[in-house]
Design a protein around this nucleic acid. Structure first.
Lengths: 174, 174
DNA sequence: ATCAATTGTTGTCGTCAACAACAATCTTTC
DNA sequence: GAAAGATTGTTGTTGACGACAACAATTGAT
């Protein structure tokens, strides 16, 4: 493949020049940096819009909480544990739609930073009861303030009422 | 960490039993499999809902187009090239918000399957003019039919009008 | 007592975004 | 027209993330 690239770059300078069907949005020379590139069917696909939106929103979250070095998934884990102390890893994973294998590493890092502690369950010696540490509780309070600031960025971007509508539409997935 | 887990599992069976602050949504024993686990602040976060929604929507897309083995990103690349023949890799990457480094591998796979061809640009010997092959064009037509079916799944899930509203709200990101 | 299921853990694999470096090539500037 | 800087495609690495498979310890059911 690399060699194929090399050879095709060097050799076939006289390329196949087909009459070439015109673009759906009719542009002359499509190679330049103009921003009038049509998306065709993509504009009707919710998945594309959602992907772009999630990219933006996650980047803003990470940037807004960069000072405390907390990522969206870590925030969601701490929030759920804070609201439901004593949950097992299984319960947290199921509730948040995270693989329990992945949650292991997430909790490892949060435990290293002394935000969360795994306490052996009194009733089931297989499972751990998850709790926030004192440090974790006060940290989470700060995270929530920063997350609220991030949420204001979202409202600024798409509009306050649109954000409300969005939350309502997607409520069935939370 | 692994040893810490081992020891804590074996040793501290008599765990710390704090009086333990009650959960925000007031539950008795939080360790069981009940689905009444509160999300607390997460319900107000657009990012969380969007993440869950994107997970669902991408999985449905992949499943619906499994017979043709096309993933969302591949579909978006072929759609844009089909609508704008002759685009450079840079232009496609910028338009779709993909890293140009990542687009290289995407195009490699699409070129291997004879859906896309990189034709040396006549005006700029650095860049490639991207085109769909004849096989790529007819394949894309089928992909679009399947993608439309997927889009109906979305409408079934969140409601036809909600889907329209969603597309409208997120139009600024496409 | 035995067998199936659950829980946490470890590991691998593939996708994806972000970055950095590089050669080839184009563009700008003197 | 030659040097300096920018752009394009490519390669590679890193880290977050989802999916899956295996495993030991433990629990629950038969």
């Amino acid at each position: 493949m690399a060699s194929q690239q090399k050879t095709s770059r060097k050799a076939a300078a006289a390329a196949i020049r087909r009459p070439q069907a015109r673009a759906a949005n009719g542009r002359a020379h499509a190679g330049d940096a103009g921003d009038d590139i049509g998306l065709d069917a993509l504009v009707g696909h919710a998945g594309y819009a959602v992907r772009r939106f999630q990219l933006w929103i996650f980047q803003d979250f990470i940037k807004t909480l960069a000072t405390v070095d907390i990522r969206p998934t870590q925030y969601s884990v701490m929030t759920v544990i804070g609201a439901n102390p004593g949950l097992s890893q299984m319960a947290v994973a199921k509730r948040l739609g995270i693989e329990r294998a992945r949650l292991v590493h997430l909790l490892d890092s949060l435990e290293e930073r002394d935000f969360v502690s795994r306490i052996p369950s009194a009733t089931d010696r297989r499972s751990h009861a998850l709790h926030l540490t004192a440090r974790g509780r006060s940290a989470l309070a700060q995270f929530k303030r920063l997350a609220a600031e991030h949420e204001r960025h979202v409202a600024d971007k798409i509009g306050k009422d649109n954000r409300e509508r969005l939350l309502q539409i997607l409520a069935c997935f939370t």
